[in-house]
Write a protein that binds this DNA or RNA. Structure first.
Length: 476
DNA sequence: ATGTTC
């Protein structure tokens, strides 16, 4: 029961046929070498996902997939409520609403290079980061409810950002259907002073420059040009999302026998979409997504303050904000019919193609910006959504390089000081709250982003638009 | 990912 029955369907497409308890086949994407390097756990977890009630089409692993909690990270799976479909907290992940946003400036690399160290210091001081780090905001219970219902739109109303930012966020900056009352007192307490903080692990705030443009028409629609300075923010819902995930995984596990469901792997806890446990999770999950959106919006404001101090009058406009840990209700073609599905994207990015009605007018002709964050010190990519991804992956693409080894292995293998020095030699400034974190996030602990992006592009999951190179990176 | 093992 593993990878031995994986069949090559096309150059970059691999299928695990429907066998045993699987209700649908599973598909994986990558080169032969990438599949050979993929952890055994991905195949086993994908088989579990493909066995869940009500799954539609196929279970999918993106080119950056690696083993996760229940579902692989880099997994897309869609469920049909009318066919007994389920929702799984492990199918969204602990960091609910985690995502990336990229801001585009009117500065050139040459403007930033002379003050790179000072800019890194100021950003490090302005944006709280690290495990358990608190920020300057303290939310009352009433404000907490408003934040959980309003997301980035709430943050803009509170003075953090510009109304023009909102159309540039997935869902317009507010995830609908949130149930703030479903977020426990404990989850709220963990978040009380964490709003607008970066967190730790692979989260980062990076000043980058546009190193290469692959498609000038799309890049132009996105406002990207060679040499331009951009800022990317990668973070999620902090302690609140973690608490929501923890509580609901336990609740789903407890409720499973009542639905006549067996859960093979406790990490794979799930509940029928329309069951009380499913409904409660979805409401709380959407509130956590709003927490993540509000957080990225507040950090955007802090970054703009730093840039305004160093570069008076400079522009820092939001290109796009997109999550890669979500479950969303979307319409997709399955076989000959179009169905309403709960699409889980765990370590996978929504990638709507040209013409999709959910896209703002600006992106209607070229498709959605798909922001793919590299690991610390390596390139990131701006891709664009394609029409092909609808048939391939429920309009989804990769989310990053994907880990090639565990944090523990990486901490053993790499020296933090060595990593910082090596990156300095490449003209990349690192500011960090934890040296161990730097070793865990060493570029060598990740897959090659170039190969992941190329596979994604060649398959048509999303198209290469621009490559971003880091200048300065703030780590938690 | 995470008040880094409720």
């Amino acid at each position: 029961m593993g990878r031995h029955d994986v069949r090559r369907r096309e150059a970059l497409v691999w299928e695990m046929p429907q066998t045993g308890s699987m209700r649908v086949p599973a598909m994986l994407f990558g080169t032969e070498a990438a599949l050979a390097a993929m952890e055994d756990g991905v195949f086993a977890q994908l088989r579990n996902v493909a066995s869940l009630p009500g799954i539609a089409g196929q279970a999918l692993a993106m080119p950056d997939a690696h083993t996760g909690y229940g579902f692989p990270i880099g997994c897309v799976a869609a469920f049909d409520a009318r066919a007994g479909g389920v929702v799984s907290a492990g199918g969204v992940g602990f960091d609910i609403g985690c995502g990336v946003r990229t801001l585009v400036s009117d500065l050139d690399r040459e403007d930033v290079e002379p003050v790179r160290e000072s800019l890194a210091d100021r950003l490090y001081d302005a944006v709280p980061a690290g495990l358990g780090a608190g920020g300057r905001l303290r939310l009352s219970d009433r404000d907490m409810d408003r934040m959980l219902a309003g997301g980035a739109a709430w943050a803009v109303r509170e003075g953090f950002g510009q109304t023009g930012d909102l159309p540039r966020c997935e869902e317009g900056g507010t995830m609908p259907g949130a149930d703030p009352a479903g977020v426990s007192a404990k989850a709220r307490e963990r978040q009380r002073d964490e709003l607008g903080t970066l967190g730790s692990g692979n989260h980062y705030l990076e000043v980058q420059h546009v190193e290469k443009i692959f498609d000038s028409r799309t890049a132009s629609a996105y406002g990207l040009r060679p040499g331009q300075v951009v800022v990317s923010i990668h973070c999620g819902s902090r302690g609140l999302g973690h608490q929501v995930a923890t509580e609901h995984m336990a609740a789903m596990l407890a409720a499973a026998p009542g639905h006549g469901l067996t859960v093979a792997d406790p990490e794979l806890a799930f509940a029928p979409i329309e069951s009380p446990a499913g409904v409660r999770y979805l409401g709380a999950m959407r509130a956590a997504i709003n927490c993540a959106l509000a957080g990225r919006q507040i950090i955007t404001h802090l970054v703009r303050e730093v840039f305004a101090a160093l570069f008076p009058g400079c522009r820092l406009a939001l290109l796009y904000d997109v999550s890669h840990n979500t479950c969303k209700v979307e319409r997709h073609a399955v076989g000959k019919s179009v169905k309403t599905l709960h699409v889980h994207r765990k370590g996978a990015t929504r990638a709507l193609g040209p013409g999709h009605p959910d896209l703002p007018e600006t992106f209607r002709e070229v498709g959605q910006p798909v922001i793919v964050g590299g690991s610390m010190g390596t390139s990131s990519y701006v891709l664009s959504g394609t029409e092909a991804s609808e048939a391939l992956s429920f309009a989804s693409a990769c989310h990053g390089a994907g880990r090639a080894m565990s944090r523990k292995q990486a901490a053993k293998r790499f020296s933090a000081k060595g990593v910082v020095a090596a990156l300095a030699g490449q003209g990349i400034t690192i500011r960090t709250h934890t040296l161990r974190g730097v070793a865990e996030e060493a570029p060598g602990a990740y897959k090659d982003i170039e190969e992941v992006a190329q596979t994604t592009h060649a398959l048509g999951l999303a198209a290469k638009t621009a490559r971003l190179r880091p200048l300065a990176c703030i780590k938690g």
